Simulated assay, not measured.
Amino acid sequence: MGLTGKLIAAIEFKAGGDVFHELFRHKPHHLSNVTPEKVQGCDLHEGQFGHVGTIITWRYTHDGKEKKAKQVIQAINEEQKLMEFKMLEGDLMELYKAFLITIHVETKNGIDLVTWTLEYEMLNEDVEHPLSLLSFFIDMTKDIETHHVEK
């Protein structure tokens, strides 16, 4: 069995792809207001929100447990509305040797799609693929959409 994996989900986003990208790029600390049951905070450690090299720590609840994730923004492509977050420390790093989360917003046939890509290397064969985390991101995307559509 291979220890590396890649999971991808593309979700239709009715509130506008620019809204989603701007939230993650420049205002990730606002996510705790948008989806408080999932994200409790996003703290800036080094750098500035929206810039490559910035280090942030997320406080979130996943599978009923409070967790943390320290990440560096590894890449931003404004034209493609793409951001890459490389995991540095936190709960996920107890199970995975490497973990990269890419968020990409694209428009196809007038429909905005938010695509989450999880690329990872498991520490051993007993570690499960992060399907519940992908589901968490899908649900969070829907929460963000509901928050912005209702305004």
Rank of each mutant, 00 (worst) to 15 (best):
L31I: 14
L31W: 10
L31N: 05
L31E: 09
S32E: 14
S32M: 08
V34Y: 08
V34I: 15
T35L: 06
P36C: 13
K38C: 09
G41C: 05
G41F: 02
G41Q: 12
C42L: 07
D43C: 06
D43H: 07
D43N: 13
D43L: 12
E46F: 03
E46V: 03
E46A: 04
G47L: 04
G47V: 00
G47M: 06
G47I: 00
Q48H: 10
Q48L: 13
Q48R: 14
F49E: 01
F49Q: 04
F49L: 02
G50I: 06
G50Q: 09
H51W: 03
V52S: 04
T54W: 02
T54N: 06
T54H: 04
T54F: 07
I55F: 01
I55D: 00
I56T: 14
I56S: 04
W58V: 00
R59N: 15
R59D: 15
T61K: 15
D63A: 14
G64V: 12
K65Y: 02
K65V: 05
E66M: 13
K67Q: 11
K67P: 05
K67E: 10
K67S: 13
K68Q: 05
K70Q: 08
K70E: 00
Q71L: 08
V72N: 00
I73G: 03
Q74E: 15
Q74W: 01
A75Q: 08
A75H: 11
I76V: 11
I76F: 08
N77S: 13
N77E: 06
N77Y: 01
E78D: 15
E78I: 12
E79A: 13
E79C: 05
Q80C: 04
Q80V: 05
K81E: 12
K81L: 12
L82D: 00
L82S: 05
E84C: 02
F85R: 00
L88T: 03
E89S: 08
L92N: 04
L92R: 07
E94A: 15
L95T: 12
Y96P: 03
Y96W: 11
A98T: 15
A98W: 08
A98N: 14
F99C: 01
F99I: 10
L100V: 14
L100F: 02
L100K: 08
L100M: 14
T102V: 14
I103G: 08
I103P: 01
V105G: 09
V105Y: 08
E106Q: 14
T107L: 07
T107P: 09
K108M: 07
N109I: 09
T115G: 13
W116G: 00
T117M: 11
L118D: 04
L118I: 13
Y120G: 03
E121I: 08
E121D: 12
L123D: 02
L123N: 14
E125V: 05
E125T: 12
D126R: 12
D126F: 11
V127L: 06
E128P: 05
H129Q: 10
H129P: 12
H129I: 06
